[in-house]
């Protein structure tokens, strides 16, 4: 849907820009040439403005949609749980139970420790991430155009898929990382956790050798520890961002004559069908990896030794 006023590049860039609300510094020249007298919290009206807001900005669309979808998940499942009876389940209840049982089974297989929080977290991740990914299947222009129409601003930035925003995926990964650290310290104690970081994987049993091995061990363990949340967030982001990108490119083809329109229709359908698999798989992978990381955080050193 490239309008006459937009080039394809502009169209793509517009679609990839979040609706940002942030702080612009004093003396900043705005998109319309006005100069700010003092630092202000405001909506970004251009990509440059959004970039200049730096860290002190919020992506309203990302947070808004993720909260709305998270609440949809909570509403559906809380309703299913509230109405649940031990009799023959039906409708919403059986759906909710089916998903819950699936997640429960998986968590029981991958997480052998005692922690009542992990399974509900896995369920939340699976359904919530799936719902956020699902937004990708809505034709790329529908919601942004509707939002532009309602707000009266034709150039409103509105990105509806929260998981194509690096902030959202890394934010979730960050929360998982914090929980990992928390449970590691809680289960192994600060000393035990430090030992795990410094005395593995190289370990000789002689203290005067081990002392020299500590820096190498720490470097390796720190990298592998930090790689977990980063890869977790980037994987989800990368898959969804690429998928969204291809949807946007297909949307551009719609504007190229009758043949382009028909071709784009088929492409859109094919990619959407394929994407159903991708969004489910990515939600599943995020859930499984989180559970595995939680299990690693609970693993004690003694159990490590038993493994070898």
């Amino acid at each position: 849907m490239a309008g006459e006023a937009q080039t394809a590049t502009e169209y793509i860039q517009h679609h990839l820009q979040n609706m940002a609300y942030g702080k612009l510094p004093a003396g900043y020249t705005r998109y319309d040439g006005t100069v700010l007298q003092e630092s202000t919290w405001t909506m970004a009206h251009s990509q440059q403005e959004a970039a200049d807001m730096g860290f002190w900005a919020i992506h309203v669309d990302t947070l808004g949609w993720s909260i709305v979808l998270g609440m949809l998940f909570c509403f559906l499942f809380a309703r299913g749980a509230k109405k649940a009876t031990s009799g023959v389940p039906s409708g919403l209840q059986s759906f909710v139970e089916m998903v819950t049982e699936f997640v429960d089974k998986l968590v029981k297989e991958t997480f052998p420790h005692r922690n009542s929080m992990v399974a509900p977290m896995a369920l939340t991740i699976f359904v919530w991430v799936f719902l956020m990914n699902l937004m990708d299947l809505i034709p790329v222009d529908w919601l942004p155009m509707a939002a532009a129409g309602i707000s009266g601003n034709p150039h409103l930035f509105f990105k509806v898929v929260p998981t194509t925003d690096l902030n959202a995926t890394l934010g979730m990964a960050l929360a998982v990382f914090v929980l990992m650290l928390f449970f590691s310290v809680k289960e192994k104690g600060p000393i035990g956790f430090l030992k795990e970081l410094t005395l593995h994987p190289f370990h000789s049993g002689k203290w005067y050798v081990d002392i020299f091995l500590i820096p190498f061990n720490f470097l390796l363990e720190a990298v592998s520890l930090l790689a977990k949340p980063v890869s977790l967030g980037l994987r989800l982001f990368g898959n969804l961002y690429a998928g969204e990108m291809i949807f946007i490119l297909i949307a551009i083809v719609f504007g190229v004559g009758v043949l382009g329109f028909i071709g784009a229709g088929f492409l859109q359908m094919g990619w959407a069908i394929f994407h159903i698999l991708v969004i489910t798989l990515q939600a599943f992978v995020f859930m499984v990896l989180t559970t595995v990381y939680m299990a690693m955080a609970h693993d004690r050193e003694e159990e490590h030794k038993n493994d070898h």
Binding site: L16, N18, A20, G22, A50, A51, M53, G54, F55, W56, A57, I58, H59, T62, L63, S66, I67, G70, F73, C74, F77, A78, G80, A81, K82, A84, V96, E97, T100, S116, M117, A119, P120, M121, L123, T124, I125, W128, P162, D165, L166, N167, A168, L170, G171, M172, L174, A175, V178
Partner: peptide, 29 residues
Amino acid sequence: MNINLTLIGQSITFLAFVWFCWKFVWPPL
């Protein structure tokens, strides 16, 4: 692609939903 406060916001939102699910969805189900 700017990293900003959304990161923290999303983390908090995530933990809030996990907490809700942990307390109100999982046990009755």
